[in-house]
Nucleic acid binder design. Structure first.
Length: 375
RNA sequence: GCCGCCUUAGCUCAGUUGGUUAGAGCACUGGUUUGUGGAACCAGGGGUCCCCCGUUCAAGCCGGGGAGGCGGUA
């Protein structure tokens, strides 16, 4: 069985490019992972997700634990077979839901009891149960169970939370055990505090992981603060392991993160926004629902090779969105995912060529143009 | 012809005993979304309350007349 490994092939400034090798295939970095919370990237067929250029996608412990349950997925041959995706899958541990479902859970040192948002039933997640669920799912990259505190938060709260997440990281490592071909990633916490981040990184490295995530960002602090944190946080993590910025972000967040040394990211924005009419393009954001598109025969982005841009007018995309036709979410999600993957491919190429700064300038110049003039 | 019901925002409709600046859903115009509780959410514009007369301090609401619509009936 191929071992899990990360090979960096080039670096330009702090930006890195390389390959994460797994038994289920290679992940080209920097990588963007579409989010498939409930064993589906909403509105997309798995083969379509692959066609956008994704090497890996993300699934979720909490959601799959509730429905259809990890045990059922295990009986049916694992998450890859279940959802017809044979490339790598990274699963979040449920840590994010500790924050996003804060009204529906009770947290103790031992773990978190959730009241199901589906039927109100109680479910316990801890480092140990999260590891077991992610094992049953057949996840290739397992995330430690952590607490992701929302920002702003005071230093005492951030410190207490980080310390507990580090204890949970040790328990996660212990419970994960030795599973060749599968990776376990630790998650750095500490809010925006440099010394807490440093302490967290050291604790994680002492435990030892296959990759390291920067957690607890893009949770209310704004881009300037996030970038300030990313000016030091990735540097605190091992240079020879993948660095994963969790939950980020918008196109310019992603570019700024890679520039600061991040190798992997995931975000719901391209898929969620695709379903709600917000489109990301080289020239910025387009709201396809806006009246200005109703008679526009031009494509969203003439330089995009996705099906939405290749075969349909803005007028059509506007019409099917307004009509709430399912193809609207399908086409716009496809476009957004393709655009995100094009950004990643562009960055990988530029880093390899040593031209990242020029690529980045071009990226920002395109956005500065704004969307095409209305007809 | 007669009887009954109806007429309030672009549409479908609420509107208490007559009482502040007449509301909702949809539609319309925009905005937001960051390890998915989300095909979600937020904000805004939009009114000759069918018309006329009357009663009253005060009428979408009460009375009279008219117009239009729907249903029943000969």
């Amino acid at each position: 069985m191929t071992k899990f490994s990360f090979t960096k092939s080039a670096q330009d400034g702090k930006a890195r490019t390389g390959v994460i090798s797994t038994p289920r295939g290679d992940i080209r970095t920097p990588a963007f992972m579409p989010v498939g919370t409930a064993a589906t990237v909403k509105a997309m067929m798995p083969e379509s997700v692959a066609a956008t250029g994704a090497d890996i996608l993300l699934g979720n412990t909490y959601h799959l634990m509730l429905r259809p349950t990890a045990e059922r997925i295990d009986r049916l041959g694992g998450l890859h077979k279940f959802m017809n995706w044979d490339k790598p899958i990274l699963t979040d541990s449920g840590g994010f839901q500790v924050m996003s479902l804060s009204d529906l859970r009770k947290l103790t040192e031992e773990g978190v009891t959730f009241k199901s948002h589906i039927d109100g039933s109680k479910h316990f997640l801890s480092p140990e149960t999260s590891m077991e669920i992610q094992r049953l799912l057949g996840s290739d990259i397992v995330m430690c169970f952590d607490e992701c505190p929302a920002l702003p938060a005071d230093r005492t709260r951030l410190n207490d939370s980080m310390q507990m997440s580090m204890r949970w990281a040790a328990r996660s490592r212990e419970a994960f055990g030795d599973r060749p071909g599968h990776a376990l990633f630790g998650i750095q916490q500490g809010g925006l505090e440099e010394d807490l981040r440093e302490e967290s990184a050291k604790a994680l490295v002492d435990i030892g992981f296959d990759g390291y995530a920067v957690g607890g960002l893009a949770v209310g602090e704004g881009q300037d603060a996030m970038f300030s944190c990313l000016d030091f946080a990735p540097d605190q993590l091992p240079e020879d392991k993948p660095r994963y910025l969790m939950g980020v972000g918008k196109p310019d967040d992603i570019v700024g993160a890679v520039k600061r040394g991040i190798d992997m990211m995931d975000c719901v924005l391209p898929s969620r926004s695709g379903r709600t009419g917000q489109v990301f393009t080289r020239r910025g954001v387009v709201n396809i629902k806006n009246a200005r598109h109703a008679d526009d025969p031009r494509p969203l982005d003439e330089n995009c090779a996705c099906p939405a841009c290749s075969n349909y007018s803005r007028a059509y995309l506007h019409h099917v969105f307004r009509s709430q036709e399912m193809i609207s979410g399908m086409l716009l999600t496809w476009h957004n995912l393709r655009y995100f993957q094009d950004i990643m491919a562009g960055m990988r190429e530029a880093i390899a060529a040593g031209t990242f700064a020029a690529w980045e300038a071009d990226f920002h110049a395109g956005r500065a143009q704004g969307d095409i003039e209305p007809l």
